[in-house]
Design a protein around this nucleic acid. Structure first.
Lengths: 302, 302
DNA sequence: ATTTCTTTTGTCTAAAAGACAATAATTTGG
DNA sequence: CCAAATTATTGTCTTTTAGACAAAAGAAAT
């Protein structure tokens, strides 16, 4: 018995709720559908569908089996497609999803270079801080902070996501420069609001974490707006190193307390991750993009 | 073409490195193996194997494809087996893995009851705080603290894992009872050592987290030992509510600062989770156990 | 009760996998 | 360096299995 065929028929029948429409979808007579599904059921020793000439419904077990089988068929098709496209030149549309600020500051400058290398790849970039799932949306690669989410998703750590305290020279001139971590509590603070509330400032001493958050003057989930406030001297903020590197060079911002172990969470594994579905690494356009990013970002910083 | 059959042949050839041995494994002539794999390769438009009459090796793409296909075949077989065993009575060996202290305090008392209900199920329980993976080890259900790890693993939150500060009456008599969260810093503390260092005592006020850890007198990763120290009046400890409930009832321990939002981490989603692979919910012995635990644990506490 | 739509069953045909022998190719051993 | 041995492929036939088509059976709607 060709189980794969039977499974495809079964899924179609479950979707459409009809043997006939499944049959037309596959351009075979309904009798074929009926026979294959009967075979499948007898091989499993269970009825997956209750057919009452007019209405086809899934049994309880059929529902559970369908869900699992659909997932498996999708995975297999993805693998097949990846292999089929393996030997072609890198080309076509490449859908990239990235965090907003990372995209603006790090990614865009690199993409010109990438486009020159692979002119046949059309880049489709969406910037968002929502973590859209790779599986459902048709995103080829995503760049996110945090950790690896799922086993089927492959995650490459591009760089650490080190948060450092920074402030503008103007602010420090009026409010003074903190010399000790605990002094931060007396300063003005600009906070990024995460889904779990504003990120605190945490100070680690001997495996002990102390909250040394300053007095909040601005709390926002918009990184650009926060950065603007910081540049205008409204207070101290914890910002990813990569996002403020240009300002540190130009002197518009100053890094504080470089000897102190400050962070915005207790997890040391935080980083910027490049995410993609494993089978897609076989697709040339995806492969060259991943290799390009790894080449250009990892060597610099890790 | 029966792709599923071709894939099984392909995997066997890749494993054994030989068409003939794959053929004997399936009790078919080698020519069949050769033909099926040739079909598969032509349908994919790629060579998966390099055959030089004496040696069969995987191509680069063959390696990647093999890995994905093996995973898919395992999943499919798991689903099929689950469905096949669906209608049988709950029986056989049920492998359970649980955190040590949860197993001792909560699980064991319930299992007598469970065994009486399903005498044909042989329980095989291993207690460990290591998080062994459900996929590789043949564990049917696992109970762990933390969050859901993977998409293919189904996680049911059995109860919140609420940590509360407790101390023995003897300790409180000599050291006094803290009336305010910040007073904890002046008390003796018993700390559980996680892989990321001792769990701090955190106090939440207006979305701000403050570390109010006491002076460490004992740090250990052994929950039973810590509990013993607590009962002997060595200091205050943050312990999961379920682990100290009996002592609170008997008066051997006293809950402190019940009005204060204390925790050992900043994540509100922490809980005790029941974990299992989705297809296994169709296996009767697994299904009745999961239903039993949900019935007996969730209604009490959630 | 009859019509209509849908699944199943029976029978034949077509396609695809298996069996077996023969061939080609490459490594091993003398 | 050549012959023997092992292994994958190819050719041909047989068997199995899926598809096609007509007819039958069953359930709902008019």
């Amino acid at each position: 018995m060709d189980q794969l065929l039977a499974l495809k028929y079964f899924c179609k029948v479950a979707e459409t709720g009809s043997f006939t429409s499944a049959a037309t979808a596959f351009s075979v007579p309904p009798s074929s559908i009926s026979r294959r599904i009967a075979d499948l059921e007898s091989s499993l020793g269970t009825h997956l569908l209750t057919r009452s000439t007019r209405v086809v419904k899934l049994t309880e077990i059929g529902i559970a089996y369908l869900e699992q089988v659909q997932e498996i068929l999708v995975q297999l098709e993805l693998s097949n497609e990846s292999v089929r496209s393996y030997q072609s030149r890198p080309m076509g549309q490449l859908k990239i999803s990235s965090m907003v600020s990372f995209g603006e500051r790090i990614l865009f400058p690199l993409l010109d270079q990438f486009s020159a290398l692979y002119p046949d790849i059309t880049l489709d970039i969406s910037l968002s801080d929502e973590l859209s799932s790779l599986a459902n949306d048709d995103i080829d690669v995503a760049i996110r902070g945090g950790y690896a989410p799922d086993e089927r998703i492959h995650a490459i750590k591009l760089m650490p996501n080190e948060f450092i305290p920074v402030a503008s020279p103007a602010y420090l001139a009026t409010m003074g420069t903190p010399e000790d971590g605990f002094e931060l509590r007396n300063h003005h603070g600009l906070f990024f609001r995460t889904p779990r509330g504003p990120s605190p400032w945490l100070l680690e001493i001997d495996d002990q974490w102390h909250d040394v958050s300053g007095q909040p003057v601005v709390i926002s989930n918009n990184a650009n707006w926060l950065m603007k406030q910081g540049l205008e001297g409204k207070g101290i903020m914890m910002a990813p190193r990569w996002s403020v590197e240009a300002y540190l060079m130009s002197g518009e911002l100053v890094e504080l307390l470089t000897d102190t172990a400050l962070s915005v969470n207790q997890n040391p594994g935080m980083g910027i991750y490049l995410l993609y579905q494993k089978p897609k690494y076989l697709v040339p356009k995806v492969k060259v993009f991943i290799d390009f990013l790894v080449e250009n970002l990892m060597e610099k910083r890790d």
